[in-house]
Structure formats: structure tokens, C-alpha cells
Design a protein around this nucleic acid. Structure first.
Lengths: 179, 179
DNA sequence: AAGGGAATGTAGCGACTGCTACAATAGACT
DNA sequence: AGTCTATTGTAGCAGTCGCTACATTCCCTT
């Protein structure tokens, strides 16, 4: 072996690159450069770009889960409004913006029928749902339904944010989960 | 003049192509072929690809508005649940799937900082909001807030649909706007 | 020490990208 | 009729894409 980058190390570096520069527009040579290797070696390790993307997506899904866990302590919110508004504030925070951009790359590719993207997106939402459920106010009778509601609304708000309709997003949140 | 395609005709044909094959991956030669002309002529008419995309986005925004108007009569829904579930059902309908795919192409590009995409997305959401407001149940005291809520939730549901989390989308809707 | 397989570099292929230089044609106007 | 301008075709450039053939180097095993 000369350098013997681990697949994990490669994925880590490529994930960092994808978070900075986008996922859909990522091509082998820039990814390789970011990971300190060559396109030649990426194909060698992952077989083809398709496999690389698949593994990169799973890595990113896991990475987001870790990042979410680290960002907000696993404690119960005081009430519904505080719960969702904390989450929204968190996602609008600098460190999470790259994840949001990559997230919509994934959604867009999933919409075009990319099965790997659908799967990765599904994994991400499941993880997000579980994470959110642990942070709901105490005593909620239907935590699944409430977590689904909040998560779905949060996703819609993210869409609105991306197209400059932050006001509409905020209004929706304040209306559905008022103080 | 030999053929003298109108810009409008070109945009129409290219919009059809974008709805079929995606917007982010659209390149000049396929677009030109779909419009019965050449990449050479597209550049001639639009100056550069950037201008073409800009005009195509506005065309699509207008097209979506027209399509929405034509799809559901401008009548008031009986209640909130009927209102939103009709809209969701409509958007999940075959003819609207291409628009959803293109929509998330736009959101994804907007997330990457594409100003034209942000603007087009904003126009689309404003139009959608106005359209929805006319179809709210009668007697709602805060139509803007309610329309924003429903629209934002619908967008979140669309995201969930794209990544195969239709169940979560439905659960959210039934929870926030129960029968 | 010899062999073997894993890892890497170099070079390049064919297809595609947005875009352009050059020339030809067609119509409108004087 | 002759000129001018708008429109179009042909050909191609320089760059990027995913991927591969070939050769080399390295470490581990025997």
C-alpha cells in the first residue's frame, strides 16, 4: 500500500466537499481532489460513480443524525411552540445550512426517480422523526402523529426558506403551533 | 426569415421537455432538439444559457398557475380538511407529478444560491398562495395565515412523498387538519 | 529471495458541455 | 436591381464527464 485511504476517510472528505459545493453537481475529479486522491482511485474503490454516491448518501444520512444529536440536548420541550421553534431556529443556523442544501439535492434527485436518493432521504426522515419524538413536550398522547406533523411542517418551512418565503414559513408555524 | 420560431413557441416546447426530463440536467442540445431547432439558435435568441433558463423559469411559473386554475374550480371548500385534502389529492395526480419534479429542481437550485431560481420559486409560491386563499372555507377569520399554513404543510408533504414517506405526510395532514 | 496481489500513476478515449467564427440565405427596403 | 439586416447552417473549440488500458510500485507471503 502507498497511502491506503480508508473508504471511511474518503467518504468523510467527500461528504465535506458535497456539503460545501452541492451533491448533484459533484463530479469525480473534484471529489477526488477534495479527498486527496484521484478519480482513478475513486472508481477503483467504489466500482463506479453510482456506488460512490450510494455510499456517500448513507454516510451523509448518518452524519446528519449525529449532527442533530450533538446540536440539541435530548430534553423535553416545555410546550409545542417551543419545541418546533427551537428546531426551526436550529436548522436555520449556519452549521446546518449546508445540510439543508444537500438535503434538497437529495429530494430533487429522488423526485427524478433516483432510488438511492429515495432510500437515503427516507432514512434521513425516519431518523429525524425519532430524534424529534424524544424532544416533544411531556404528556403528548400521540407522539407519532405530533412528530410527523411538526417534521412535515418543518420540511415545508425549509422549502419556503429556500425560495425566500421565510415570512410565509413563520406565519405557518405561528398559526399551527401558537404560543 | 426561414422558420422564425417565436420565443414563446420555443419556451413552450422547452418547458414540455423540462417537465419530462428534468430542469437541472437540461442541456442546450436536447432542449433545442425538443424545440425543433439547434443549440446555435437558442444562444442566438436568448444570449446565453443563463437567460434561457431565466425565461424558462418564468414561463413554468406562469404555466403552473394556469394549470392550477384549470384543475380545480374556484369554489369554497366545505371545511379545512376537505380543502387541504383536495389540494393534496390534486397534486398527487398524474398531470401534476412533472410539475412537482421540476419544482424540486427549482428548490434545489435555489438552495445552491441560484437567484433566478429563488425568484421563480417565490413567484410560484405567491401564486399558489393566492390560488389557495380563494378556495378556503367561507368565514375564516385569518385567510392569509390559514393559506400559509396549508401551503407550507402541503410543501412538506410533497417532500415526504418524494422520499417515500407518504404515510408520514398523510398522518401530518390528518393530525393538523382533522375531519 | 521470489512471487503475487493490492494499490497507484499516467495517459487517454469517446461523449458531452456551453459557446463561437464564418459563411450562406432569405426577406424587407431604397 | 441592389443593399442591408435578420436569421440560419456548418464546423469546431476548449473544457469536462465517467471510465479504462497499461504499466509500475509496494507490501505480504512463501
Amino acid at each position: 500500500m502507498k497511502k491506503s485511504h480508508t473508504k471511511q476517510e474518503l467518504l468523510e472528505a467527500m461528504a465535506r466537499h458535497a456539503l460545501k459545493h452541492g451533491l448533484n453537481s459533484a463530479s469525480l475529479r473534484p471529489l477526488a481532489k477534495a479527498a486527496g486522491t484521484s478519480d482513478r482511485m475513486l472508481i477503483y474503490h467504489f466500482g463506479a460513480k453510482e456506488g460512490l454516491i450510494r455510499e456517500l448518501l448513507l454516510f451523509l444520512a448518518n452524519d446528519l443524525a449525529i449532527r442533530l444529536d450533538g446540536a440539541l440536548p435530548a430534553r423535553r420541550a416545555k410546550n409545542r411552540h417551543e419545541c418546533i421553534s427551537e428546531i426551526v431556529a436550529l436548522l436555520r443556523t449556519g452549521p446546518f445550512l449546508p445540510y439543508m442544501r444537500v438535503w434538497f439535492d437529495i429530494v430533487s434527485s429522488a423526485a427524478q426517480g433516483g432510488r438511492d436518493h429515495v432510500q437515503a432521504g427516507s432514512v434521513m426522515m425516519s431518523g429525524f422523526h425519532a430524534w424529534l419524538k424524544e424532544r416533544l413536550p411531556q404528556g403528548e398522547e400521540q407522539p407519532d402523529a405530533l412528530a410527523s406533523s411538526m417534521l412535515t411542517l418543518v420540511e415545508g418551512m425549509a422549502v419556503m426558506d429556500m425560495v425566500g418565503q421565510t415570512d410565509m414559513a413563520d406565519l405557518a408555524m405561528e398559526t399551527l403551533f401558537p404560543k
